[in-house]
Write a protein that binds this DNA or RNA. Structure first.
Lengths: 338, 338
DNA sequence: CGGACGACGTTATACGTACAACTTGCAGCG
DNA sequence: CGCTGCAAGTTGTACGTATAACGTCGTCCG
């Protein structure tokens, strides 16, 4: 574990650069104009970079008596609406050097949880979705204990991973559609370079390759309803025999596929069987209701946290994929069932 | 402003209780067994309560070298899925005395934002949705600057409020449906005691009362698709002439209404016009697409943050409702249009 | 030639907490 | 009576940072 040596402080940087701690603070705080020579400032910045110095926020906050952080209390995280609220608030906050911390108001979290308890912040560890690739580099900068969600278990990061058994979900989906008699498949894939999506493609191809006479095409789409609609519409109007089964990387893409089918005059499931993955509320809002793979998000979160706790206490985290189940609804049927 | 006197510290509590600061720390940290007399401990606790003492988390974190806080990086807040992940993680974390802070990975928040910047925490202020009523009492305990979203502007809290012009949204909806010729209305209302919902009911009633020959019934439903389905199904099968227009408090409820209509064999919009409020992705995933009121969530967030900044800098925050627009789609038509 | 001033730093301190190490008074025991 | 031991605290210190207040040296001007 890299947790051996303690994190460098501003004094360590000072020592390395041959100046006082105060000088480091001045330079790194951009208050050095006319107080520190350019050359010295350069030396300090270099030393800081070399040591991987990050200021201790607790100390800074204590010193400044302010945190430049704000709490956003939202009813729950269940709608796109408050995602937008967060985004807007965070943007303005960032412009003013503020941060925003989310507090989703308690819903089974515990009895009368104190909102402020969740905001003691500055971090001991990180749980990261593999879809949040953008943030990862910044995270690896620190030497924080890290747990990855749905990431390559053999990944180069060496981080602990907690995965849903997506492969099995895809396997169940393929088996179901094959059993119904489908042979011509279209895979509506998310265009995000993430292990969790790559594994879907790989496993679907593997399952179908095992059955002679099957055909698999792939269409790539952005992870939004309307992006998916466009991609599906294009793919479904391509020349050649039309696929009878459409396997979507998640429920949102499936919703887009429904819109595409509607536009092309295709009936679901008569002309086209559609499957999703996630089992969002959206899945049963569609008509017909969507056959999809149910993921237990809460369990996923719990396992992720447990794994992180294990790492923090330098225990061995459990290594076991979380099972998923196919929920068969009205969007799948035998092909050409008129 | 209540920001006059600075927050009490453990030393203030000590002075008030006639003991040393260390004793306060022992008592409040539950480490006093066999070190402090029960009577003294009692006195300390009382003094703490009286002064409204809250430990300074920055100082505590600095002292302990640990924050018992963990970061959850999610791709975005746009799906129910990660809401579940958060809930599960937060539950386990709470059991271990940990907090969870959300970092929705950047999507237009700014160029290469540092995830950790958002986690310096301990708060200077709070932005709260009026729907998050549960958390409010805890918040009022502190004397933090508070901005309420969509709350009663004449509310007793005296907090700054930033509101969407929901009343105008309802007005536009009513006008649209009345112009189409509807006279028998059903209001599918959220069963959450919050100003933002109360105002919908009030304004809808007001609009319809102005037109002779109109009729308004109300059904109350939990804020979920399936809860709404049940409520709508019941209300629509009630005796008497069936309503021709169904006004829903938000898009999710509208999705439930679609399911109810499907079960009852009612065609939308032929037999029943339906409207929503929010304009979620869900709205265009429905068939036919939903006529709904578009709320600019990001702008809402921005205004909320700007208002909070104004309060923090003791400026006068702008007091102006955020405009909304009715988006007419396929779910509304003249009644009995066969 | 004296001293004022700017450039370049340093020293010292405070923020509020948790806890290790020390003190004090009193009971009990050999 | 002297000593141990325990209850009931207190004193002192460190966590890492930002910044006010202070040197020190050379230069330039009157």
């Amino acid at each position: 574990m890299a947790a051996g040596s303690t994190r460098p402080t501003s004094r360590d940087v000072a020592r390395a650069a041959g100046v006082s701690q105060a000088a480091v603070s001045l330079v790194l705080g951009d208050k050095w104009r006319g107080r520190v020579a350019e050359a010295t400032a350069q030396r300090v910045r270099e030393a800081a970079r070399e040591l991987g110095y990050r200021p201790n926020l607790a100390a800074r906050n204590l010193r400044l008596g302010s945190t430049r952080t704000v709490l956003l209390v939202v009813p729950a995280l269940t709608t796109e609406f408050f995602a937008g609220v967060y985004t807007g608030a965070a943007r303005v906050a960032a412009d003013h050097g503020f941060g925003v911390v989310l507090y989703p108001s308690p819903e089974g979290i515990g009895p009368a949880r104190d909102p402020f308890a969740s905001a003691q912040a500055a971090l001991d560890g990180v749980i990261a979705s593999s879809m949040a690739a953008e943030a990862l580099t910044a995270i690896r900068g620190d030497q924080l204990p890290l747990v990855m969600l749905d990431s390559d278990p053999a990944g180069g990061t060496g981080a602990t991973t907690v995965n849903l058994d997506i492969r099995d979900g895809v396997r169940q989906t393929a088996r179901h559609l094959l059993a119904l008699g489908h042979r011509r498949f279209l895979h509506l894939a998310a265009d995000i370079p993430s292990w969790t999506f790559e594994v879907r493609a790989r496993e679907l191809a593997r399952c179908l390759a095992a059955v002679p006479g099957t055909e698999l095409r792939t269409a790539s789409a952005p992870l939004s309803i309307d992006g998916a609609r466009t991609a599906a519409e294009t793919a479904l109007s391509a020349p050649g025999p039309r696929p009878t089964a459409l396997v979507c990387d998640d429920d949102k893409l499936a919703a887009g596929a429904y819109k595409a089918a509607r536009r092309l005059g295709l009936r679901i499931p008569g002309d086209l069987s559609v499957t999703g993955l996630d089992d969002l509320a959206l899945a049963t809002a569609l008509d017909p209701e969507l056959t999809t793979v149910r993921l237990d998000a809460e369990l996923f979160g719990e396992r992720g946290m447990q794994a992180l706790l294990a790492v923090l206490e330098s225990r061995e985290p459990a290594r076991e994929d979380i099972p998923v189940t196919l929920v068969v609804r009205g969007s799948t049927a035998p092909p050409n069932a008129f």
